[in-house]
């Protein structure tokens, strides 16, 4: 709230994340997994929707939002993911197709942010570190899946495994430039 400069933060990516969580956590109304699980779902939902609210409605934040460069269109990601979820899913029910859609969408939701970083060239520490930690966080899921594969009954997780792998790959190129700039102690820039 103190840092009102959101230059370089993609509203499109934030809106896609809000959509990801809204469509994935429909099971909050039907299943109870654990208190931790429910609390984290509420945190993800409230934080993603409040970021969108801040970027759209808050006077100071909105002023610094780089609208002209953040031109990626939602439908180019949302529609293919919806079609893919309608074709490839485990069960053809509303909740299951929405869950599958959210998994596919999450894999590509970072794209508008990466495009914006590439266009503006000049990357704030804030946005550079944000993307780095988001990618690092997702890659920890892969370690967790390997751990669970060996310690739990053999579940089929193809949809989440492949989508999570694709998501981590999308960050790989960014990681390369991020780590290089860190190693050489220079400001992070992405090639055009």
């Amino acid at each position: 709230r103190k840092n009102t400069n959101k230059r370089g933060v993609s509203l499109k990516t934030q809106e896609l994340y809000a959509l990801v969580f809204a469509t994935r956590y429909l099971d909050m109304f039907t299943d109870f997994i654990s208190l931790y699980n429910t609390v984290m779902k509420l945190i993800f939902l409230s934080s993603s929707f409040s970021i969108v609210w801040y970027m759209r409605r808050h006077k100071l934040v909105r002023r610094s939002y780089d609208k002209d460069h953040d031109t990626f269109r939602h439908q180019f990601l949302v529609l293919p993911c919806l079609i893919l979820a309608l074709l490839i899913h485990e069960q053809f029910t509303f909740k299951e197709v929405m869950w599958t859609f959210s998994i596919y969408l999450e894999a590509v939701a970072i794209l508008p942010q990466l495009v914006l970083l590439q266009r503006t060239r000049n990357i704030d520490n804030l946005t550079g570190q944000y993307v780095f930690f988001l990618g690092a966080y997702r890659s920890l899921y892969i370690l967790n899946w390997i751990y669970r594969y060996f310690t739990e009954p053999h579940y089929v997780h193809w949809i989440t495994w492949i989508s999570g792998f694709v998501q981590t790959l999308l960050y790989a190129d960014f990681f390369y430039y991020y780590l290089n700039s860190w190693k050489n102690n220079v400001k992070l820039t992405l090639p055009a």
Binding site: S34, N37, K41, P153, H154, Y155, V156, T160
Partner: peptide, 10 residues
Amino acid sequence: GCLPAPKDEL
């Protein structure tokens, strides 16, 4: 054998 995946991940 393989079981259907539980939806316990965030």
